[in-house]
Simulated scan of single mutants.
Amino acid sequence: MKILLPPSETKRPGGNGAPLDVSALALPGLAAARHEVIDALIDLAGDEDHARRVLKLSAKQAGDIAHNRMLRSAATMPAVDRYTGVLFDALDSGSLAPASRRWLGAHVWIHSAPLGPIGALDPIPPYRLAAGTSLPGLPPLRRHWADATTEAIAGEDPDFILDLRSEAYVALGPVPDAVASCYVRVVTEHGRALNHFNKKSKGLLVRALAEDRARLRSLRMLRTWADRRGFVLRSADEPGVEELVVAE
């Protein structure tokens, strides 16, 4: 099983890892596409006013441009520790046992805008780029990433994919049709979609999977595990979509 997570806009600063090594990231077939986005971000960072407009940053966020300028030289940390926010706070990877963190590294991809899907333990620097951004010199990120990412995922030949991404990141790399998968939507008992609890519930779900170091190869096995663990999963009206039901 592979799990696809969205990134977060907020990131932990600093790090003590070596600078970014694109060749060492998960899904190595995406290396060329990654270098193109990195180069475009570094070039853009050379003009702060233009970068603020393209990245839609406020004056208080202008410091993020420096992160982009240093993408190839800044210190790194594991991606799952770099990202903060509701989902990653609920996952709380730093408090997991070493074996559970290794499970994250083997089973979780986090879908970043500049690098595509990366392994949870892949070391990355801080950056600023959203899924809907169009960078000078490149096509919109959806066109830049979608086909290449789908092909790279297919090349990994996963037996089952649990897709917990937001729709914006699904568009950057749809799961191949030939791969068994389910997309998870968080809802209340009455079917109302949630926002804050959507992210928190996904983080708690992945944490529980990591704690158990689950070996799941199908939707049926996921449902059995979820029932035992107290998570409520039910089929949605749309094919390939599961609803994770939480209290309001």
Rank of each mutant, 00 (worst) to 15 (best):
N68M: 05
R72A: 05
S8R: 04
G15I: 05
K11V: 05
G173H: 07
W145Y: 06
E242Y: 13
E36M: 11
R234F: 01
E238T: 13
L5S: 07
D212I: 03
D81Y: 15
V179L: 14
L27G: 09
E151Y: 04
I124Q: 14
H144K: 11
D39C: 06
A75K: 15
S100T: 01
A171M: 12
S218D: 01
V187Q: 01
G15P: 08
V80F: 11
A146N: 14
A171N: 13
H35F: 12
S93I: 14
W109F: 09
P176A: 10
G105S: 10
E151N: 14
S134I: 15
G14T: 11
A180G: 09
S58H: 09
S218K: 12
A152S: 14
E151I: 11
R128S: 03
P140A: 13
V80E: 09
P176G: 08
A24H: 03
P136Q: 15
S100P: 00
R220Q: 04
L20G: 10
R52Y: 02
E238I: 08
V37L: 04
R220F: 02
A74Y: 11
P98V: 12
P19D: 03
L222W: 11
D122L: 09
R102W: 03
L4I: 12
L141R: 00
A171F: 06
D64M: 14
G191W: 04
